[in-house]
């Protein structure tokens, strides 16, 4: 399941809902991305996430389907927020559930690595004086992290 929303999410409730009634699950892995107070050493006061409505939902659904085809998942959830966020706020949640932990770990990592390089979101950071706004630049190490999934076909 994927959700693109402005409002915050409750991790416990989301996990409980994902695993409800499914006793085949033996391991659940979650990743929560949060807003850091520092960007390149400078304090930020807020971050505004813009996205491409329509393509975002389509892209997230596609990658979720790929993860489900690649690993034996009993459940999968991606929530990505947009709009104005402050340091400490939750940005993104990825939850994967499987009979065994390895598939859950790998699928979760695959999903977040992919999200960082392909999901159409852009971060605009504002400095503490409010005046200095700048678009966050893409990070080369994120691309490398995502690329490693192109040539590994391990299934657990």
């Amino acid at each position: 399941m994927i959700r693109v929303q402005q409002e915050d999410f409750d991790v416990s409730r989301e996990i409980a809902s994902l695993r409800a009634g499914d006793l085949s699950i033996g391991g659940i892995c979650s990743f929560i991305g949060t807003v850091r107070e520092l960007s390149g050493g400078a304090a930020i006061s807020s971050m505004t996430l813009e996205h491409y409505p329509g393509m975002t939902e389509r892209a997230l659904s596609d990658i979720e389907a790929q993860a489900c085809a690649r690993w034996p998942l009993s459940g999968c959830l991606i929530i990505h927020r947009y709009g104005k966020l402050e340091p400490g706020d939750q940005i993104v949640l990825v939850v994967t559930a499987s009979a065994h932990r390895q598939a859950a770990f790998d699928a979760c990592q695959f999903l977040i690595d992919w999200l960082k390089t392909k999901a159409p979101f852009w971060k605009l950071e504002a400095g503490t004086d409010g005046a200095d706004k700048h678009w966050v630049e893409a990070n080369g190490s994120d691309t490398l992290a995502a690329n490693r999934w192109d040539d590994t076909q391990d299934k657990t």
């Binding site: 990505h80 979101f121 971060k123 678009w135 893409a138």
Partner: peptide, 10 residues
């Protein structure tokens, strides 16, 4: 047709 910078979500 959409034009945008490299993405920075997650």
């Amino acid at each position: 047709v959409a034009f945008f910078p490299p993405v920075t979500g997650g």
